[in-house]
Design a binder for these strands. Sequence first.
DNA 1: AGGTAGATCTCCT
DNA 2: GGAGATCTACCTT
Length: 192
Amino acid sequence: MKGRILPRSFYARPTAEVARALLGKVLVHGATAGTIVETEAYLGGGDDLAAHTARGMTPRTQVIFGPPGHAYVYLIYGMYECLNLVAEPDGTPGCVLIRALAPVTGIELMRKRRPKARGIGDLASGPGKLTLAMGITRAQNGVDVTRGALVVREPREESRFEILVTPRIGISKCADLPLRFVMEQEMANSRS
DNA sequence: AGGTAGATCTCCT
DNA sequence: GGAGATCTACCTT
């Protein structure tokens, strides 16, 4: 029995709140699914200079200004695609970058798509990796994530976890803002 | 184990 | 013309 799909109202609130709330939810695309374990908020409004929307709307970024609960997929450094989920009410910019997933289903398919990954932990442990592993491309830019092939669901069973808040990764502007959210799983069993 | 180079799209100066 | 919300391969310790 699957968890319910997150409704559009889930996304229609402040971006940082959505980023935090997405931790522990399950991203599903086709036959693959993974638990969201790391997110970053990119704010609209112009104060956040690291956001793609900092200098207004462009053809690429117009979906971020649109209704919440949609996907924004963009190409970074010419090679890798990154998945964002649009937050805030229609007309207000703001999106959440999905930075890392813990694979749940379709792991064999993910391995096939990323043959160089060393283990489960490497399959979707970065923004560019997780889009490759789940088969997400710019073809999914602008799609509705409250219905269709690409959706976000409640987890099947509730789990308790700590949330770590840190500055965002890989940017130089506004790098001091605490807008990165990481699921901190208490692992007493990890041995190397 | 850790650092660096290379690949090559979109938007701004 | 060049930086950027990155990842991998190929170096050197």
